[in-house]
Design a binder for these strands. Structure first.
Lengths: 147, 147
DNA sequence: TACATAATGTAGCCTTGGCTACACTTGAGC
DNA sequence: GCTCAAGTGTAGCCAAGGCTACATTATGTA
């Protein structure tokens, strides 16, 4: 009594499209960490002259152990340059990514604030949203701000 | 030559706030999967009369193995009711969550489209964004749509 | 009814990203 | 120049969420 309904295929949202969207979301998730780290490192370097593991840990809300392991991966991927017991530096690639992220973050926060969302909520939401904003959507946000 | 710069503390973004935001983002990430699954199950049930593992796998863009393991977790958490080789059913709790997600998804997509973003991009972006939209921000989106 | 095929389930592997507990370096100050 | 606290590194645990390969069940159809 369950095979009868097998044929129709009139999904509310087409399966293929949602699968594609979710795969995109998963890809984005994989780069979220890198983005958060390089952005934090850039900010800390600007503010303190250097970025240290403890500072990053405080800033990112995780333990220094997590920071350490993640930095190893980011070094493997060419975003940062790390030496034992030394400060953390961004590579050119890392700096480029950080600049993009800071730019995008600024637009997303400003956009949310322009909708009447309080600064603090805007910050919190932006942190989650910004990694999933496509260039087209970012452009739309910027357009809306310009008006 | 590196200790000198340790004192100032004038972060571009306060550490505590960013840490808090990121912790919130991580909490949201933990519920993303549950939301995507219950929403997909609700949609499939509405469209086909039932939700099967293969359909879910196709819809979510993963293998049936991943679906299976995740369903076990969702059952543990009380969102779905699963029996071997049978269709998947939402519990009351699962249905409630699915309804919320569908509602939120609709608003986010409509909002993005209202900004001039093409339907397909809006769908893709919404899939990533919707999980990080706070009630306040969702309300702001709805307000903007009403205008 | 029997069987082939599709659906489902299981075993076991990988990576990421949390954590605690413990070990080792560094460097500021006595 | 020693010492000790803070910072950093390492070992090893856990859960989530991907995967392939293989085993098992259900069922439409010959």
């Amino acid at each position: 009594m369950k095979k009868a309904v097998r044929a129709p295929r009139k999904p509310v949202r087409p399966s293929a499209l949602q699968a594609e969207s979710l795969q995109q979301t998963r890809r984005e998730h994989a780069s979220e960490t890198a983005e958060d780290y390089v952005e934090a490192i850039a900010d800390l370097t600007a503010a303190h002259g250097e970025a240290r593991v403890v500072d990053l840990a405080r800033r990112l809300g995780v333990t220094h152990v997590t920071v350490n392991r993640t930095l190893a991966r980011l070094q493997r991927e060419g975003y940062v340059s790390v030496q034992p017991y030394r400060a953390i530096f961004l590579t050119d690639r890392g700096r480029t990514l950080a600049a993009e992220c800071q730019h995008r973050h600024g637009i997303v926060v400003a956009f949310l604030v322009s909708l009447g969302i309080p600064e603090k909520s805007a910050e919190i939401d932006a942190e989650g949203i910004e990694h999933h904003v496509s260039p087209a959507t970012l452009a739309a946000f910027a357009r809306h701000l310009a008006k």
